[in-house]
Amino acid sequence: MKLKNLILCSLFAAITAILAQLEIPLPYVPISGQTLAVGLTATILGSKLGAISMICYTCLGAVGLPVFAGASGGIGVLVGPTGGYIFGFIAAAYITGYILEKTTYSIPIALAANIVGMVITLIIGTIQLKFAMDISWSKSLAAGTYPFIAVGLIKAFLASWIGIIVRNRLVHANLLQKASY
């Protein structure tokens, strides 16, 4: 079981690194596939494995591997304007997975949980953006939150819909444990 969990966490860290390369550049923070990957990870793996996957992803980038958006990596990214979003992925994965574990793995609940995860990521990311760029709260919100709400809702829906389908198939194939409520 431990080896299977290690493989799953590594796989989802790799999926996050791949989806991070799908991006739309914006002045301060790009729109990327990372948040979709975070939602998928949490929806499929749950709180602990989801958070571990995001910790692995963050550590891969911290040591300089080009896994973050724009094929970037290094400590400079984590302490820079976009680093808060990356740290937010860990909290978002845990909380999203936790909500699902404590309720039920269904698309409507997954959507609500993924929206909560999106908000957590945006809050942590926007706070670091404000201080790293030394800009006002209004500029920080305009650059780091508002542009991501509509696309974040779409990604939350996709993560919920795809995530529940994939999770159910992995449970059916005995590759994941069925949730016990």
Rank of each mutant, 00 (worst) to 15 (best):
V171Y: 02
E23A: 14
F131A: 05
L65T: 00
L8Y: 07
Y181F: 12
I18F: 14
I164E: 10
Y28K: 05
F131E: 10
I18K: 08
S138T: 14
G61H: 09
Y146A: 12
A71F: 14
V77K: 12
A179E: 01
Y181S: 15
I123S: 05
I149M: 11
L122T: 09
A69C: 10
I109E: 02
S140C: 03
A112Q: 13
L19P: 00
V151G: 13
G74I: 00
I18H: 10
P25E: 00
L100E: 08
A37V: 03
P25V: 12
T121Q: 12
I18P: 07
I164S: 10
G39R: 00
S136N: 04
G50Y: 05
R169L: 14
V119F: 10
F157S: 14
A112C: 15
I99D: 07
G70E: 09
V151T: 12
A42T: 03
A20D: 15
I18W: 04
T43E: 07
P27I: 11
A92V: 01
A51I: 02
S180E: 15
T96P: 01
I120M: 07
V63I: 15
I162N: 02
F148M: 12
A91Q: 01
G33W: 07
A156R: 09
I18Y: 06
V77T: 11
I123P: 12
S160L: 09
A156N: 02
A69P: 12
Q128P: 06
A51C: 05
L129A: 09
P25F: 06
S10L: 07
R169Y: 04
G80E: 13
I75V: 12
L36M: 03
E101G: 13
C59Y: 12
F68R: 15
L176A: 09
S138D: 11
V67F: 01
L19F: 13
G117V: 10
A37W: 04
C56V: 15
T145W: 11
W161K: 11
F131W: 08
I127V: 13
Y98V: 00
L60T: 09
K139W: 00
Y85F: 13
P27C: 08
L141Y: 00
L170R: 01
R167K: 08
L141C: 02
G144A: 07
A13D: 00
T121F: 00
A17E: 09
A51R: 13
F89T: 03
